[in-house]
Amino acid sequence: MYYERSLSKAPVIELEEAVKELAETGKRVKVLWQEPDALTFVARGREYRSEFHINPSDEIMYMIKGQMNLHIRKEDGSEEIVVVPEGGLNFTPHGMPHSPRFPPDAFLLVSERVRREGEADRFQWYCPSCDALLHEETFVVSDYRADPVSKAYSNFFDSEEARTCGKCGNTMPRPEGV
């Protein structure tokens, strides 16, 4: 069920149907609609999520099912965890490095705007041993249905060089299921 723009329609989405579809298919993202100023999708948790996403758009996140630990990196570089319970709503401003972590049987509704010309999403991984920046992936996201998060993960975890810390030499292991 993907919304096609029409002035004669006002879409009504059954979230339970979107959740059921993701659970049954194993897919990670279901785009509900994607318009010039509005992008809304349901995401299923990734048990291996570890990167920080830097989005050029503000995000509103609603925890449909389960609980999310939203890791954020503050301006001073320190990390904080914001717990978003089932039914909880969160606002994450553009430019804030954040990492929504929740299990594959949990589901999140995300609403943001489509990227403008020249904007790019960034995905950053930090060394689990010394907290140095390990790697950054940058994507121009013109269509969220292409699942840029999965592509960023593949690029990172398929490269031992990207996963090896230049500061302390630690190599982040490649998790199962990526």
Rank of each mutant, 00 (worst) to 15 (best):
V84Y: 03
G66Y: 06
H98Q: 05
R5Y: 14
E80N: 12
I64P: 01
A146P: 00
C127A: 01
S8T: 10
V110E: 12
A23F: 02
M68Q: 11
G66E: 07
D121G: 11
Q124A: 15
R116T: 14
L109N: 04
K151E: 15
T171H: 00
L70D: 00
R116Q: 14
S99T: 01
I64W: 02
K167V: 09
C165F: 05
M1V: 05
A38R: 09
E160I: 12
G66D: 10
C130D: 05
E161R: 12
Y126S: 11
L7E: 13
M1G: 07
P11Y: 07
T171S: 00
S78Y: 15
W125P: 00
F157T: 08
R73P: 01
D37L: 04
P56T: 06
I64C: 02
S57K: 14
A43G: 09
G66L: 09
E75R: 12
D37M: 03
I64R: 01
R122N: 00
Y3N: 03
N90Q: 13
C127Q: 00
F52A: 06
L70W: 00
R115A: 09
K74C: 13
K27D: 07
P128A: 10
V149L: 02
A18D: 06
T92W: 00
E117L: 10
E21Q: 09
L7C: 08
S154P: 04
Y153S: 03
S6H: 14
V141N: 07
Q124M: 15
V42N: 08
H94N: 06
F157K: 06
A132H: 06
T138V: 14
R163Y: 13
E24N: 11
G169D: 00
P93V: 11
V178P: 05
V29P: 02
F139W: 07
V42Q: 08
S150F: 09
P36R: 05
E35G: 14
A132V: 02
F41D: 01
E51M: 12
R73M: 08
D58N: 10
I81V: 15
A106I: 15
D37A: 04
E117R: 11
P56F: 05
G26Q: 04
S111M: 15
E4I: 05
P103H: 13
